[in-house]
């Protein structure tokens, strides 16, 4: 038996909006640790990892590890029926081929049940070891989204370069070129407005902007984003979900032939 009650139901709505463009079908894994998901896009270029820790739920019951295959478009359709202030409870019985989403209005005067069919999904799980990154950039998530959107109107790929001077986003296309440099800026009124660069050594990698733009669908989840770069690894773009966990996106770089 599985029963997860999330008072801040809007978080779950935002999580679905953040991942449904990248991934069509995925297995949600439930264990004592929390509610998690790992899935790749259809071309295996990008991967999304979600964790909502059990402590972040008002009530969390998961009698045994459970993997529930869902079409994310369908989950999103269901969750869009929840009000933004609603409490969301996810329920499933052992061996059942359905999951139930229950939406309660804050003053309990409206309670809705949406039952959705589960599906069998053959998904591959990749082992992602902890890594030391050559550079980690933390910046306002809205700023990162703006940069990705602006550059994708000029080119298809972005070169992200981190040096002592700052982080540079560069692109080139038929109509011209663009460079955006963000310098470290810790002297701001609010910490979430800071750009902080932790650099062990300079690093420069090339990525497809299409995927980065898709990652920025997670912007409503967090005021800040961290971008971890190493020359021999996929970039990790992480949005922390307050007190609960994270959505992490991994994107393979372009590789020199």
């Amino acid at each position: 038996m599985l029963e997860l009650r999330l008072v801040q139901g809007s978080l779950l709505k935002k999580v679905l909006e953040a991942i449904k463009e990248l991934v069509t079908d995925a297995n949600f894994d439930c264990s004592a640790t929390g509610f998690s998901l790992q899935a790749m896009d259809s071309s295996h270029v990008a991967l999304v990892a979600l964790l909502l820790r059990s402590e972040g739920f008002e009530h969390y019951r998961c009698d045994r590890n459970l993997s529930m295959g869902m079409n994310l478009g369908n989950v999103s359709k269901m969750l869009r029926c929840a009000g933004s202030d609603d409490i969301i409870t996810i329920k499933a019985d052992d061996g059942s081929d359905t999951v139930t989403f229950m939406f309660e209005s804050p003053n309990q005067d409206k309670i809705a049940d949406f039952e959705m069919k589960l599906m069998d999904i053959d998904s591959e799980h990749l082992g992602i070891p902890d890594a030391e990154y050559q550079a980690i950039v933390r910046m306002p998530s809205g700023e990162f989204a703006r940069i990705c959107k602006d550059l994708s109107s000029i080119g298809d790929t972005v070169i992200i370069s981190v040096t002592k001077e700052g982080v540079k986003f560069s692109t080139a296309g038929d109509i011209g070129t663009a460079n955006i440099v963000c310098r470290q800026n810790k002297t701001v009124d609010k910490p979430e407005e800071a750009t902080v660069i932790e650099m062990q050594e300079p690093v420069s990698l090339t990525f497809a902007l299409r995927y980065l733009n898709s990652f920025t669908k997670a912007t409503p989840l967090s005021e800040t984003v961290s971008i971890s770069l190493s020359s021999d690894l996929p970039v990790v773009v992480e949005y922390k979900i307050a007190d609960m966990g994270y959505v992490r996106y991994y994107l393979a770089p372009k590789i020199e032939e």
Binding site: S43, V45, H125, L126, G127, I128, T206, K254, I255, E257
Partner: peptide, 14 residues
Amino acid sequence: DSIQGTMYNFYEKC
């Protein structure tokens, strides 16, 4: 010239 890498270039199935 560069080609697009995939997750399999970096991580192993488990």
